[in-house]
Computed example of a mutant assay.
Amino acid sequence: MENGISLYPGLDNTLTENLQLLEQAARCGIRRVFTSLHIPETDVAVLKKELAMLLEAARKYGMEIISDVSPRTLSMLDMPKFDMSTFQQLGITTLRLDYGYEAAQIAEFSHNELGIRLQLNASTITEKILSELQAAGVDFSHLDALHNFYPRRGTGLSEVALCRKNALLKQYGIKVGAFVPSQGKQRGPLFEGLPTLEAHRLWHTDRSARHLAALGVDSVFLSDSLPLPEELATVGKLRGNEVVVEAQLLTGDKIQQELLNHTFTAREDEARDAIRAQESRGLLQGPVEPERNKERRRGAITIDNKDYLRYMGELEIIKKSQPADKRVNVVGRVSECELFMLKYITPGRKFSFQFE
């Protein structure tokens, strides 16, 4: 996954804070930066003073710089007209066309020879807009899409709405990103988080980011002004097409612990009562002795022991509660608040555990 942070010169952070944020993000493997050049509350004088220094620092770290632009941007930057070469000179590599641009203009922009990519607003996209872009001759290979974030409580997207928009964009081969809020310094003027999904407004950033990855989002962006170091680390290590679930470790056995640290694939022949790991028996590095042969409730993580003969090493996540079996060890449990994540571990999907 190509994940990112957000910068807002002329708003909450000092220049030093933003430069430090860029450095910390780069150390965590984050290679995308989102900024907006049409926020009404922006101190335009500060923006003009700091923007070039921030973009230069981002380029030094090899970061893609995405700028949200609209007709208002022209007045903020004293641009007499929309000129892609001016954005290139600033160091902006991707333009997110928020509103105010016709299909013919976007088609023209998509064929520019400056190497500037375009980004659509994933939250407001429709089949009609995409059909018009296709008819206008847009080069879709130079496009991706990014959802909005929503400062006002109660206005964020539902999961159903996000997935519907994502599915539409995927039909055209367009990758999609979305935002998660931070528990660190939140951005003004409301200071109530900037989520794409309303459900994420009060969630921990780690869970929100893993949830977006589970939903198949291609890029996760931290939206707030000054995320915490651990949030940067979380977003930096996210992997695409993998469902990572938080769990408690219940075994002290080193052989089983080693097995649990792997990434697995859910078997294509989906069982009714459990998610079965395709590779676990082949990954096992030693015998599994019987232990913790308890009732297997929903969310239990189990490993078959040596008494199950050739099934020894079979790893499962229980979907439907089952009685205790002396041949099956209960070695962990998916956290209660993350049981909802099991529905995303569909046949063929990668999954792993994040132990508390």
Rank of each mutant, 00 (worst) to 15 (best):
D43G: 01
L21V: 00
C28A: 14
P151D: 04
L222K: 05
I174W: 00
E17V: 03
I125S: 06
S131M: 14
L21A: 03
H262S: 14
E108F: 14
H111W: 14
A161T: 02
K60Y: 15
D78K: 08
G177N: 00
V33L: 09
I301N: 00
R31I: 09
D269A: 12
M341G: 09
A167Q: 12
R292I: 09
I317W: 03
K81G: 05
D253L: 14
L15I: 10
T35S: 06
E314Q: 12
R153W: 12
L168C: 07
L130G: 05
S223E: 00
E132L: 06
L226F: 06
L169D: 00
R187T: 15
D98A: 01
E231H: 06
R310Y: 11
R31N: 14
R298P: 02
V328I: 15
Q248N: 13
V138K: 03
V245A: 05
Q322N: 04
N329F: 04
S70D: 08
L37K: 02
L7H: 07
E336R: 14
L162Y: 00
P195G: 06
A25C: 07
L215G: 07
E2Y: 06
T302Y: 06
R272V: 09
I129H: 10
A209H: 03
S321L: 07
H262A: 15
I318N: 00
Q186S: 13
Q256R: 10
E314S: 12
K170A: 01
E102G: 10
L97Y: 09
A266L: 06
W203E: 07
Q171L: 10
R164M: 11
K185R: 14
T86S: 13
R349M: 13
T251K: 04
C28R: 07
Y150D: 00
L19Q: 15
R292T: 10
K185P: 00
L342R: 11
K343E: 15
L315A: 04
